[in-house]
Design a protein around this nucleic acid. Structure first.
Length: 426
RNA sequence: GGAGAGGUAGCGAAGUCCGGUCGUAACGCGCCCGACUCGAAAUCGGGUUACGGACUAAUAAUCCGUACGUGGGUUCAAAUCCCACCCUCUCCGCCA
């Protein structure tokens, strides 16, 4: 959410940001209702000031045994008017709120302009494509043949876009989670949490999934609860409506949770395999930082996510999302795209974003500067470190051998009871 | 699921029965500044909510409004009375 005062005084900047995002929102309407709101506010607050004064007088008159009948008549008329104005105000407050909740974040100046992912900007490439003297297979083919991935059974017990992991695959899922969490907690300073994967509306409003993107979420029938699409939601909301001491910043948390996405509107995309599932596990990194350092913090966060791929020896590239591809709440996002030899494509495995104060304003996350009276909004950042299912996909495709087996990278072997190779699962 | 108790500043807590300068919110603790001290403790003095609006270059000062879990209602006036909901705690039931 943007600050209405910022929109008022920097209207052209916001308009230009909306244009870059190809948004058709018309700010004039918002500015008009904002003006109307303040006009009403002015009148009703003036009346309330008078009411407060008279109320005190009535009290005094009554205490000294007098009769405040004249004042009471005045007050009655005033009360009626105040009620009318308060009702108007409530309606218009809601309108302003709805408006503000629907305006996307302003992209950072370093974000390239563009309309589709084709205009994302490559930042760097790490490693190189593995050399294979055979035609690499896709992960679902390998994983199914090796007995670890079972899409058919998942379809029976639940439906499409689910998978049953068996044997080595189930263990590899756990191994990856442990490995990633160990790196982030032991080397990169994140404090691990395990939050609920079911959250309420306020939490989803706080991070920006609601009200605009309800169709992407699983809503639990007859409740006010939703399944989380990412641990970003519960972890960011750990500090909702709190003012933190400045010395506490930066705060860094990591969490491994299941994530649930309805994938409405992605029919036909990635229908085979584990790339796009309704349920998947992900290690998420979340940082709460001082506004002055949030872009340095974004580079740091990106590095933490990259370190996992480097340790796993997986070739990847980093891209900056262009304005047209940028998420609603984000001011700047780097995607890490891992190379998948079977697909012959780079695919997103992590997304690292700086939300600046966009989420903090919605969620009421502030800090108290040591040298100032007023609290300020923190900046929030998050990134995947990493999506576990997609990491398994990358491992299968990158470490496959001509005979259909798959090598396990050394750093993971301790987590796999020393297993060095995935062969047919009995 | 049943019964009971509770939700007021950073924390504890008074006020609620019987509505009226009680929200810059008693009192205690904590925290900040000062005095005393070589320094500290103790003691003494002072200060210490957030948000919105007006005025502003200002996220400074000042003025006004709002907020006693949340949302409604009654009233000239609600922390206080009425209704609904949420959360916490205790006991019982059920249960991984």
């Amino acid at each position: 959410m943007l600050d209405i005062r910022y929109i008022r005084s920097n209207t052209e900047d916001v308009r230009s940001a909306l244009r870059k995002r190809h948004s058709s929102l018309n700010l004039d309407e918002l500015l008009a209702i904002d003006q109307e709101r303040r006009d009403i506010l002015l009148e009703v607050e003036d009346l309330k000031a008078k009411r407060n004064q008279s109320s005190g007088e009535i009290s005094r008159i009554k205490k000294s045994g007098g009769d405040p009948a004249d004042l009471l008549a005045d007050m009655s008329a005033m009360a009626t008017r105040i009620k009318v104005l308060d009702d108007q105000l409530k309606r218009i407050d809601q309108q302003v709120e709805d408006w503000l909740l629907s305006i996307p974040n302003v992209p950072h100046e370093s974000v390239p302009e563009g309309s589709t992912e084709n205009e994302n900007q490559e930042v760097r490439v790490w490693g190189s494509k593995p050399e294979m003297n055979f035609t690499p297979k896709e992960h679902w083919e390998l994983g199914t043949a090796l007995g670890g991935l079972d899409f058919e059974t998942a379809a029976k017990i639940t439906g499409s876009r689910f998978v049953v992991l068996k044997g080595w695959a189930a263990r590899l899922e756990r191994a990856l989670a442990s490995f990633m969490l160990d790196v982030q907690t032991q080397e990169n300073g994140y404090a691990e949490v395990m939050p609920p994967v079911i959250v309420n509306r306020d939490s989803l409003l706080g991070t920006g999934q609601l009200p605009k993107f309800a169709e992407d979420l699983f809503h639990l029938e007859n409740t006010a609860y939703y399944l989380i699409p990412t641990a970003e939601v519960p972890v960011t909301n750990l500090y909702r409506d709190m003012t933190l001491p400045e010395t506490a910043l930066p705060i860094a948390h990591c969490a491994c949770t299941s994530c649930f996405r309805s994938e409405a509107g992605s029919y036909g995309k990635d229908t085979k395999g584990m790339i796009r599932q309704h349920q998947f596990d992900k290690v998420e990194l979340v940082r709460f930082v001082h506004p002055d350092s949030s872009y340095a913090e974004l580079e740091l966060l990106l590095g933490h996510a990259e370190s996992i791929l480097q340790k796993l020896g997986l070739h990847y590239r980093v891209v900056t999302l262009c304005t047209g591809d940028l998420g609603f709440s984000s001011a700047k996002t780097y995607d890490i795209e891992v190379w998948l030899p079977g697909q012959g494509a780079y695919r997103e495995i992590s997304s690292c974003s700086n939300f600046e104060d966009f989420q903090a304003r919605r969620a009421g996350i502030r800090f108290k500067p040591h040298d100032a009276k007023k609290s300020r909004l923190v900046h929030t950042l998050n990134g995947s470190g990493l999506a576990i299912g997609r990491t398994m996909v990358a491992l299968l495709e990158n470490y496959q051998e001509a005979d259909g087996s798959v090598r396990i990278p050394e750093v993971l072997q301790p987590y796999m009871h020393g297993q060095q190779r995935i062969e047919l699962c009995k």
